[in-house]
């Protein structure tokens, strides 16, 4: 039986790389998100993007210093949030 209530894991993440969430970082994030089964969304100033869709991530227009809220719910939500937070902290491997 499906659980009736799924807990939402959420965390605030800061965009640290100078170029912001542009083409390559959004591509990397979308690729990473497809490895998890939980729902993953990123919110900036009321605008919500699906982490698996690179185009919706780019539409957030998040530049360096933007604070985004990541929300995940589903079986592997915790590990997904951890992995995505690491990607932000590594500045998407772009200096």
């Amino acid at each position: 039986m499906e659980p009736t209530h799924t807990e939402v894991v959420s965390r605030d993440l800061t965009v640290q790389n100078p170029e912001g969430l542009h083409l390559r970082p959004a591509g990397k994030l979308a690729r990473l998100a497809t490895e998890y089964n939980c729902s993953l969304e990123l919110e900036r100033c009321g605008q919500v993007a699906d982490c698996r869709s690179m185009i919706s991530l780019m539409t957030l227009g998040a530049s360096q210093g933007s604070v985004l809220t990541l929300r995940a719910s589903g079986p592997d939500a915790d590990s997904a949030v951890e992995a995505i937070a690491r990607l932000f902290e590594s500045r998407f491997d772009e200096l």
């Binding site: 083409l23 591509g27 690729r31 869709s53 690179m54």
Partner: peptide, 16 residues
């Protein structure tokens, strides 16, 4: 070259 790798990801974007 990496620009085009990212463009590939756009092609398979679920929203698009």
């Amino acid at each position: 070259g990496g620009i085009f790798t990212a463009q590939q990801q756009l092609l398979v974007d679920p929203h698009i």
